[in-house]
């Protein structure tokens, strides 16, 4: 789906939850960089201070058609993305998520199980076993690429191909061709294996 088809959905505000070391900030940044390639106006802001690996942290992405004016935390996101299922029930992942919003979670559980567990209502829910994909392809629990794939299934503000290019460029700065290739494969698997369910209000 092209961005034009989603004209009414921009600007979109996303809040990312995860732990230090899982690529939360990188995921938010990759989305911003891909959006910039599409001629959109992104902003990606990490929300962490002195935290280190393993500590819960957040990041925010805003994507619109004009230069972003607001700076600071996203308080009422249309989309919440959770990269670590151990955060469910520990941090307020649903806080401020708008009615009719989108929740993307890295979990091996099904959409239905997640909906039951969190008593979700009036949302589009997307689950993906990003950790499983990452462990198989990357050998480490860095689930951001498959999560981005799942994200683009339900929030197609940039084409998958543009995200591929962005991953090649950004990860290519620091990592070898094999790791980049594994991340591209992980992105695709995340996209393909994402489960999506709409949950009505009642």
């Amino acid at each position: 789906m092209s961005v034009e088809a989603l004209a009414l959905k921009l600007p979109v505000e996303v809040r990312w939850h995860g732990r230090g070391g899982q690529g939360v900030v990188t995921a938010s940044r990759l989305l911003a960089e891909a959006a910039l390639k599409e001629g959109l106006f992104p902003q990606s802001l990490p929300d962490f201070g002195a935290e280190r690996s393993g500590a819960p942290l957040m990041a925010y992405t805003r994507v619109g058609r004009e230069h972003p004016q607001e700076r600071g935390h996203v308080l009422e996101p249309q989309v919440v993305v959770v990269l670590d299922s151990t955060l469910l029930g520990r941090v307020k992942i649903l806080e401020g998520l708008i009615q009719g919003g989108i929740l993307v979670v890295n979990t091996s559980a099904s959409c239905e199980a997640l909906v039951d567990r969190l008593q979700l209502r009036d949302l589009l829910v997307c689950t993906v076993d990003a950790t499983g994909i990452a462990m198989k392809l990357l050998g480490r629990n860095i689930p951001n690429s498959p999560v981005l794939g799942a994200f683009l299934r339900v929030v197609p503000i940039v084409p998958l191909g543009v995200m591929e290019e962005t991953i090649k460029e950004r990860l290519g700065l620091r990592m070898g061709a094999k790791v980049v290739q594994a991340n591209l494969e992980a992105l695709h698997q995340g996209y393909q294996r994402a489960q999506v369910r709409g949950v009505a209000w009642n």
Partner: peptide, 12 residues
């Protein structure tokens, strides 16, 4: 420039 809000904020 404002710390974090600008220094760590990625924009075009």
């Amino acid at each position: 420039i404002d710390g974090f809000t600008v220094t760590h904020s990625v924009e075009g």
